[in-house]
């Protein structure tokens, strides 16, 4: 038996009413600021991009990866997570730092800082290589341990 979220629906409605009032006030300020369409595209777009693009994309990759590696095990040590973990970490870094890695804001960055944003793609590739190498090393240790 799962408890009801809040015993009294009145309390539930009251909490929602306060939340909608504050959020509505903030949204009204954005409307007054005059860029409501662009804001709405970003606000809803961020959720849509995550829920209907990013999530299916990484889930599908993960599922395909798990499927093809189902029998990928040496000495009973499954290889799945030793590839999954560095791949997801590297993917997350790309997701967060893609403007610098892909050089999308080079000009703005130069105007702000007075120098060009060099080396981000190289650094991301290097970090990715280190993550996979470290994971491979851990895997090798576990395989050797399982053998002995």
């Amino acid at each position: 038996m799962k408890p009801r979220a809040v015993g009294v629906p009145v309390l539930q409605i009251a909490i929602h009413a306060v939340a909608f009032a504050i959020a509505g006030y903030a949204l009204a300020q954005i409307v007054r600021g005059g860029s409501v369409v662009n804001f709405a595209i970003w606000f809803v777009g961020a959720a849509v991009l995550h829920d209907l693009l990013l999530f299916p994309f990484y889930s599908l990759l993960d599922r395909l990866g798990v499927r093809t590696r189902r029998d990928g095990a040496v000495n009973q040590v499954p290889v799945t997570n030793y590839l999954r973990v560095p791949a997801l970490m590297s993917g997350l870094l790309l997701l967060v730092y893609f403007p610098l890695i892909l050089g999308l804001s080079d000009h703005q960055y130069y105007l702000a800082s007075g120098h060009h944003p060099h080396g981000y793609a190289r650094n991301w590739i290097a970090i990715t290589a280190v993550l996979f190498a470290g994971s491979g090393l851990l895997y090798a240790i576990r395989v050797l341990r399982a053998k002995s």
């Binding site: 306060v18 939340a19 909608f20 009032a21 504050i22 959020a23 006030y25 903030a26 949204l27 300020q29 954005i30 600021g33 860029s35 662009n38 804001f39 970003w42 606000f43 730092y97 403007p99 610098l100 999308l104 804001s105 703005q108 960055y109 702000a112 800082s113």
Partner: peptide, 25 residues
């Protein structure tokens, strides 16, 4: 933080009021 602005709104205002939407919800 990466000086990348692919939008037309005032970042400070939208980030501020967006925060209130988020905090309330």
């Amino acid at each position: 933080i990466q000086v990348f602005y692919p939008w037309h709104f005032n970042f400070v205002r939208e980030h501020y009021y967006g925060a209130w939407v988020f905090i309330a919800a």
